[in-house]
Amino acid sequence: MLSGTRPGQDGGAGSPLSAGAPKLLSVQELRTHFRTAAGVVKAVDGVSFSIGAGSSLGIVGESGSGKSVTSLSIMRLIEPPGFVAGGHILFKGRDIVSFSEREIRGLRGRDICLVFQDPMAALNPVYTVGDQVIEALQAHQDMGRREARDRAIALFKMVGIPAPERRVDDYPHKLSGGMRQRVTIAIALANEPDLLILDEPTTALDVTIQAQILDLVKDLRQRINTAVLLITHDIGVVKEMCEEVVVMYGGRVMERGATAQVTGAPRHPYTVGLLSSIPSPAMKGRRLNAIGGSVPSPLRMPPGCPFQPRCPHAMPVCATTPELRPTDSGSLAACWLY
């Protein structure tokens, strides 16, 4: 049965900011590159962060910032010509970068699960959604088909799918986009993972369904105490969902810290730009703020800070790469202003 808190986990110590909070996942100086005919693309270039057991962290940035490649690297789903060029991914203290394919298969779907952006692409169209949940259960548990089917129905009910006894026999194309995304979340939660990675889980859904899915994730996190890594381009969603945030741009971390600190008193100019571009009722009748320019080509990144061509505070020293340093707000920012 799905339980509330795992043995050995304190439901009240979920925050990664808590003293002595265990680090379930620790990403250290991760570098993921892709070999192309035009040169090597450094999609992720020295990214570091950690997630405590039962806590939540958001990675936010524009398209091309390296967010999704980071999540795929954690799942060891990077395929040639891509490769992890350096760094460590410690899960429960073990570096999964060095895992064999057999070891990583045992981890995926059981301890770490990934919910993809497009549920229709993630689900197999020739199998019923119930069969796909049953497969996920039987891959990691000694469970008969009848028991697995009953568990699938219970999971569908838990994620808010109506008439679950009937829906388990439906094929993906018979379900709405919101229902398909609920199915992928049910599959991800089937084995009660320690870490749930959500890669833009609401992008393809309308606004009302987006809110329902995000509320579902918050509720499920509290009920089964799984840690959540949310990948998104919407910093407003991170404000609502996550305790900590990592702001990425050009494959690097621009700012990192507690969500309240980063969003309440942003220090990196890129973070300021993201937050100022969020529409609000107070802006009625005024032009929406936007960050000028666009993300540079990964093959032609500027020297030093990748944001400098678009930064209103760019200085000559920005041609030299800044390190993440503490700011007066309590966050860490890779900016020469600090």
Rank of each mutant, 00 (worst) to 15 (best):
L195E: 01
G86F: 13
K174S: 13
I278C: 07
G109I: 04
T226V: 08
Q141F: 09
G82Q: 14
V41P: 07
R267Q: 15
A21M: 13
V44C: 07
L25T: 00
V97E: 02
A227Y: 03
D10P: 08
R182L: 10
Y127W: 14
P164V: 04
R252V: 06
L90Q: 12
E29M: 10
Q141I: 08
V69T: 14
E165P: 06
V246N: 03
A227D: 04
A19E: 15
R31I: 11
T208M: 10
E103T: 12
L155C: 12
I89R: 05
T202F: 09
D170Y: 13
L205V: 02
G292W: 10
L229C: 13
E165S: 13
V237K: 07
P201I: 03
G14P: 13
L114S: 03
A314H: 05
L175S: 09
A265E: 15
E255G: 05
G64D: 11
M120S: 01
T271M: 00
V115L: 05
F99K: 10
Y249V: 01
V27I: 09
S3D: 15
C305R: 01
Y338E: 12
K239H: 14
M143G: 06
L205E: 01
I59E: 00
I197Q: 00
L123C: 08
T128V: 03
I197W: 00
E165K: 10
F99L: 12
V44N: 07
L230H: 04
D95L: 06
A136H: 03
V237R: 01
D118I: 05
C318V: 11
V253A: 08
S56F: 04
N225M: 10
R94H: 14
C305N: 04
S176I: 11
R221K: 07
Q181H: 07
R182K: 14
R110S: 09
L189M: 06
P162F: 11
L229W: 05
Y249S: 01
